[in-house]
Design a protein around this nucleic acid. Structure first.
Lengths: 152, 152
DNA sequence: CCTTGACTTAAAGTTCACTTTAAGTTGTAT
DNA sequence: ATACAACTTAAAGTGAACTTTAAGTCAAGG
């Protein structure tokens, strides 16, 4: 089974121009062409594209993905470097998830804040609330928002 | 305790130009000025800045954060809208975390892939591996990478 | 009073990742 | 043979979020 750029784009749910852009940036040196110069995507090309997608989602920039592609094409002599790259991206993603969890905690607190305000008809209900009035699982998020007040 | 833009920037660990940019975009209408026109940040301003930071980390664009600020300044009549905004951002962040978890699973598989290749001295070890050779917790990530092969 | 570092603004510049445009070519279907 | 959709490229354009520059002002210390 072979695919044109438009068909490959549909499979991957991206714009054809995105794939052409990646190619132009040197991310797809393995994609072959027809006699007339049209890109011909094969099954194995999707393996590459999915790894590119993964690296992109992990926050790697296009130019650094290109460096990975270049490494991979060099063969076994770059195994160590490539392992290191994936280990680094793994750590970065774990950090991102921790930060997102913090953001989620704050959003949870704010949802409770506005639910409470909605019931009372005013945000002023929060003016005289003490720590015990805040649901336990939201207290650390609230303290985090307050942390800058206990500075200096 | 009051702060200049440079001092506030240090507390929040951002560039002073970033804060000025936010102000220009209408995110900081509550920040007062000295007689000479210099921004004066007070404790309560940091409450706003932390919420702005949270919304930004949740993926909200500057122009939409501005809309939230405008809403908040309108007072109690916008409580419902603001609640909805935070509930939406909460859902978006949960989705982002799920996607990041998928990315992490793929990275975990790739780390194992290169660790194994490193020990063998070649990525060719993977050519004749069967499913049972892949650690159980990595199999779904591997299948995910292979999913496009079982198409059509 | 004067120096000096940090502040002010408007406007231009940067980076990233695409997307769009324009002009032309390929390949399939009738 | 011809029409037509989808392909090709280079180059220009977009949008988001800042950052930098330039020219000038403020305010605290000596």
């Amino acid at each position: 089974m072979i695919y044109t750029v438009g068909e490959a784009a549909k499979v991957l749910d991206v714009a054809p121009s995105t794939i052409r852009y990646y190619d132009k940036e040197g991310l797809l040196p393995f994609v072959e062409r027809s006699g007339g110069g049209i890109r011909v995507f094969k099954e194995k090309d999707f393996d590459w594209l999915l790894i590119i997608e993964c690296l992109k989602k992990s926050g790697l920039q296009i130019k650094d993905i290109k460096r990975f592609i270049d490494m991979a094409l060099k063969g076994d002599e770059t195994i160590d470097e490539r392992l290191e790259l994936f280990q680094n991206q793994r750590k970065k993603v774990i950090k991102q998830m921790e930060e997102l969890q913090q953001t989620l905690d704050t959003l949870d607190y704010k949802c409770w804040y506005y639910e409470t305000a909605k019931q009372a008809g005013t945000t002023a209900v929060h003016d005289h609330l003490s720590v015990e009035d805040i649901p336990e699982h939201l207290r650390s998020a609230k303290e985090n928002l307050d942390r800058l007040h206990r500075r200096g």
